[in-house]
């Protein structure tokens, strides 16, 4: 694998990016851009927070992976692994590969609900993990939540917790919580909790690419001399 494109060149840079853990102090909030400028503008640090749990309330199948995809792709580009801890279904390899995630960097951890939290904690605490995605249902007891948050801080990577059916109002130890729902060709995102002033208006995001989210009415892929379209791979007639 080639050198990560944005590996730190100076110590300051490294510290700013959170690549170095400065033992006694709390790590500064660092973030990884989500790939959606409108969203990044509202997220503390300008993206998904690192060294913390980012909590997404969603209904499965509403484009939650597609929303995370730009950030995950960046993680993958850096050669770092992405761990899926107890996802609801099979991560379908052809789709993930089409979406630009090298499968060699994708790890699927299967675990029972009890083990899942332990495994998630272990994974979050590992500094070498680029991104850790965990799934949890409506109930998550506070003690566990705190442990996860602590582990995420130890590890310093991108921690994402996807929750289905959790009430929006319950307090949590996680610094960021948003609710995602499909809307037209993209999403309606509500920031329920963030460091800093809350946001009352929902954000409307449109999908920048078709991976994970087919759009049959999308402009047609074609290499057409002067005109530029992006080409999706298509089954070649053998």
């Amino acid at each position: 694998m080639s050198r990560p494109p944005d590996s730190p060149h100076t110590l300051q840079q490294a510290i700013r990016q959170g690549a170095v853990w400065r033992g006694d102090r709390c790590p500064p909030i660092t973030a990884r851009p989500s790939g959606y400028p409108a969203l990044d503008a509202q997220l503390p640090g300008g993206g998904w927070g690192l060294g913390q749990i980012n909590e997404l309330l969603h209904r499965p199948g509403q484009g939650e992976l597609a929303l995370l995809l730009p950030a995950l792709r960046r993680v993958a580009e850096e050669g770092r692994p992405i761990l899926l801890v107890a996802p609801p279904w099979i991560p379908y390899a052809p789709a993930w590969a089409q979406a630009g995630i090298p499968l060699a960097q994708l790890v699927w951890i299967r675990a029972t609900a009890a083990d899942a939290l332990w495994a998630l904690e272990q994974a979050l605490a590992e500094p070498d993990c680029g991104a850790v995605l965990g799934w949890a249902g409506p109930r998550l007891d506070d003690r566990h939540a705190r442990r996860l948050q602590l582990a995420a801080r130890r590890g310093g990577g991108l921690g994402l917790l996807l929750r289905h059916g959790a009430p929006e109002s319950v307090a949590s130890p996680f610094p960021l919580r948003l609710a995602v729902a499909a809307q037209g060709d993209g999403w309606r995102v509500r920031l329920l909790k963030r460091r800093g002033p809350p946001l009352s208006e929902p954000l409307y995001l449109t999908q920048p690419d078709s991976s994970f989210r087919p759009r049959p009415e999308s402009p047609l892929p074609c290499h057409a001399g002067l005109l530029e379209f992006d080409a999706t791979p298509r089954r070649r007639a053998a």
Partner: peptide, 30 residues
């Protein structure tokens, strides 16, 4: 191990040891 390169073997070995072989896997296309 070099940071950022490859998989966190030790973590995966630990997870595998606890959760059982076959719980820590990758996926590939066919």
């Amino acid at each position: 191990p070099q940071g950022g390169q490859g998989l966190p073997e030790l973590l995966l070995a630990r997870l595998g040891a606890r959760l059982g072989q076959g719980a820590v896997i990758g996926v590939a296309t066919v």
